[in-house]
Design a protein around this nucleic acid. Sequence first.
DNA 1: AGCACGCCGACT
DNA 2: GTCGGCGTGCTC
Length: 833
Amino acid sequence: LEQINCFADLLLPLPVGGTFTYGIPDELNGKIQEGLRVVVQFGKRKIYTALVIRVHQEKPGGYIPKNILSSLDEKPVVTHFQKQLWEWMASYYLCHEGEVLNAALPSAFKLASESKIIINPAIEESFHSFNEKEQLLIEALQYRKAIEIDDVSKILGQQKVIPVIKTLMEKGIILLQEEVAEKYQPKKEFFIRLAEEYDEDEEKLKDLFNSLEKKAKKQLELLMAFYHLSRMGADVRKEISHHELLKFSNISQTVLKSLIEKNVFESFEKVVSRLDIQVADSHPDNILMSDIQQVAYDQIQAAFTRKDVVLLHGVTSSGKTELYIKFIQETINQGKQVLYLLPEIALTGHIINRLKKYFGNRIGVSHSKFNENERVEIWNKVLSADQTDKNHDNSYDIILGARSSVFLPFSNLGLVIVDEEHDPSFKQFDPSPRYNARDCALYLAHLHGAKAILGSATPSMESYFNASEGKYELVEIKERYGNLDLPEIIVVDVKNEIRWKKMKSHFSSVLMKQLEDALAKQEQSILFQNRRGFSLRLECETCNWMPMCRNCDVTLVYHKKQNQLRCHYCGYTTRIPENCPECRGTNLKMKGFGTEKVEEELSILLPGAKIARMDLDTTRSKHSYQRILEDFGQKKTDILVGTQMVTKGLDFDNVSTVGILNADNMLSFPDFRAAERSYQLMAQVSGRSGRKNKRGKVIIQTYNPNHMVIRNVVENNYTRMYQQQILDRRKFKYPPLSRLIQLRLKHKDQRLLNQAADWLAARLRLAFGNRVLGPEYPVVSRVMNFYLKHILLKFERSSSMISMKSLLIREMEGFYSEKKFVSVRVIIDVDPQ
DNA sequence: AGCACGCCGACT
DNA sequence: GTCGGCGTGCTC
């Protein structure tokens, strides 16, 4: 028997470089190919899912390869496009391909490798003597057949369990069981169908009805419900799930059970999708576009003949979504796939339902609230889109999703849309790969030869710059959809208000008047308070002492609900001290105002108003975000107070007033993007205001009413903001006129960290000269007992980033070969946000 | 990443 | 004398 291709190069989902060569055992001979997932042992004990990169017959030298344990797939689950994208991501973002693979694969796609212990079945009676702990564990093992090592510590009530396990293993009482099972479990549900005899013979069915009518009213009712349900949709359904029938009929399970026992119904189990769509009817052809939209549509169409990427700059509520829908429709008509990216937070029920209405079960939604099994289903449905599936029962050709959707197995992309392209949350901060999904999506589009639309009311400096340089085509929509006027923006000088004692707490007289008016007219309001630095803190009035986190270099934030002080970085909590630990004084006061405080004070000032709050605290649970928005949409709430969150994805038609409580704390943030961000936030939140045929009002409270950014917001002058900013960026060599790479160094020992940072910066200066800035302490210089220090690399646009990056890699190797620094973690962030 | 191996300080 | 702390280096 001739063996062909007996080795495979595998990529492991780990931060290690390169591939590893494994042997293909006889039983898998001929069954291993590129793009399959296989199970391997890597190192002494660990079992991993790996991806087959290449199959060959070159016997490796210097070591004896281990064999592949098993294969998880028959057909590839990873496409060529994906591999190209991942390779590019690893080289662009300076990380390992394994890290990209780890981020890309849904975790249910990887294996569970939990080491479990079991009782040795060969031993029936034991002549050993056991100590108390050993006895305890043996008893536990008699109740549960397998216990994970992590759980043993709970049973024994102590941290160190390995010695106990070790001695018991040596005595042969227990065994280690390496359980390998695929985590993905298809969802199954019980269904019923009418027994064959009744389904075919109407006479028999009539008899059944008659007999049930006399003896079993409830059973008849259930049978009728079944009939009803089966004829409700467009097609007659012969199979109905237990769950659906019982819920619809509101009849108890025992009734169903007796009908099954009587052989009226047949019951069976079936694999169902977790992603079933409620919206049944879709009407893809009803896209009504205004003249303005039509013009924009034609412009984009024309632009695509010249360039593959179009930046669509359209003011808020200019109807960009209809344009997207039109382009999506055309793309799928050509038999191609569409990727529609949105920031996580903008993926609300609103937009999802709107698109599902058009595209029904051809569109898949993918965001972080989906569990791991659901993610596997999305993956498979994208993967199967290239096979002929005209009904789209098992495939998606449109994906609406957040950042991580760029990893899906597209085979034939025709269009990529990145909406709200300016949004900083497209950039992954931690862990690696620290990628910007917008940029990856553009590269992905390029790989597929697809067109791309970047959409925003407030484009990022980078994208607008690219458009003005001719790299992208620019299409602008300057009017809002349906004659909606842009809101009137009123700037309130807080200095004046204070001078004339017109401020009520943090609300100016102008804002209060507006809120009262809106309330009287039953119109809704949104109040925006930037979270940064504005949560409640405790301060000693005598000596200015502030409570700090034990592990991080930040002040603690007061949380009213638990009545405690809390660290926003590590979660450390402490009780409120009675007196100041520095000066023993009792003059401790709360300072600052967060959204919670705004809500509280507003409820005193406007006792009749129904106020809701939307921030990190109130949206922690799975559905709370949705609920707050729904309540607001259904006008159950008069005033919505919130952070950043209120600026995105909200589309309500009864909001007359938007208040920005403190514009200054965003403008003064120490970041070169502060002005850009502030403009974006204020413009976006202002866009929430305005109703049909009625102009909305926006009130901005500030100490600097003449600040250029605020004036640009008032005049809705994006272009001027851009031009002013670009001068600054040019002057100080910041993006888009340069490219940044940030190095974040981390260590528990501050002295070693400083030494390492200085050493590395000096070494980098030899290679890059004055392109190196720092090392510098970040705003928060200690998190969870790790000290932090940053080095920034600033490269001019003309420099070749590929050679700069390989030079950087070489310098980093030099750093790590310095043995005293190996414990210093260095995080490399390309294009940091 | 995860894990074993190996070298030094605090305890039965 | 040993247990266990973490630094070091390898995994096909």
